[in-house]
Design a protein around this nucleic acid. Structure first.
Lengths: 152, 152
DNA sequence: TTAAATGCAAAGAATTTGCATAACA
DNA sequence: TGTTATGCAAATTCTTTGCATTTAA
């Protein structure tokens, strides 16, 4: 229970562009370093889900000296600012993506296939959870596991 | 992607008692050892969710020499046989419980509170997932995170 | 008497941290 | 010029594995 907060405050300005994100960093007393810029560039360059290690690889293609631990620290910071979000698709490393493209995940336990699903898929569950338990679900952090069409 | 299979074959005999579970072990060429018996006793003694380390503690209260790695190996084996199941409630260690009492989990990201919810809570989502993606959900492995009534 | 299980130590994967140095603002 | 960030190495946490030995059947 001692890592990043997956919370994304509702009043947080959304970072739609790389420059927006850097502005957010500045506003919170952070500094615009080249590792931050390059990491954000990698994140904005593709909509995919990538592990810290994959991102470090992309970053290091630009600047080989940027260390994995720096990538982790920057991802933490960007997550605190609401720019990125991480999720878990199974055992193994977490994956990171831009908060502006949050959505649910179905992951096949058999073949590992990832299906991105609209949040609306969880509306019914959200309503029930609130009605019966007063619980507000956040369906993004953990994937919903199961079997994909091919593996059923 | 290289650990236990969370799959619980539908045709698997359910182990309702400690002796049933041991019988299953025997049927699959396994041996009834004291560590297995003691571990199963701990699992059946309470309906709770416990980490491997917590279970090891309980087991070691009976037999101090039983090693944590033995507990992990036995939990793996029992999971393969469909007797126990593990789930993840957040970052941190997995928790184990009897497969006969599977249910969904809501975990509060703020205070950590665990709410056990009936599987039927996921019926709507299951139906939609199947209809729209041919995906069969298994809502047990990962908890559904969110905010509990008190923390909302 | 032999295949399966154990204890122990060590490795492994993912992530975090301490600390001296570097570099934004 | 004073934080804030970085590189690097080392530590942490959770889990798995190799191997010599023990044990159940």
């Amino acid at each position: 229970m001692s890592r990043r907060s997956p919370t994304q405050p509702a009043d947080q300005a959304e970072a739609a562009t790389l420059e927006d994100a850097l502005e957010l960093v500045r506003q919170h007393g952070g500094r615009v370093t080249s590792s931050r810029r390059i990491l954000l560039h990698a994140l904005f360059a593709s909509q995919g889900h990538r592990t810290a290690e994959e991102l470090a690889g992309e970053v290091q293609a630009e600047a080989p000296d940027i260390h994995l631990s720096t990538v982790y620290r920057n991802l933490d910071e960007l997550e605190r600012l609401g720019v990125v979000v991480h999720s878990h698709f199974g055992h193994g490393p977490a994956t990171y993506h831009l908060a502006s493209s949050v959505h649910g995940h179905f992951v096949c336990e058999e073949c590992g296939r990832l299906t991105e699903v609209p949040d609306s898929m969880f509306d019914g569950l959200a309503k029930q959870a609130r009605a019966r338990f007063g619980f507000t679900i956040d369906p993004h952090h953990f994937a919903m596991l199961g079997r994909c069409a091919d593996c059923t």
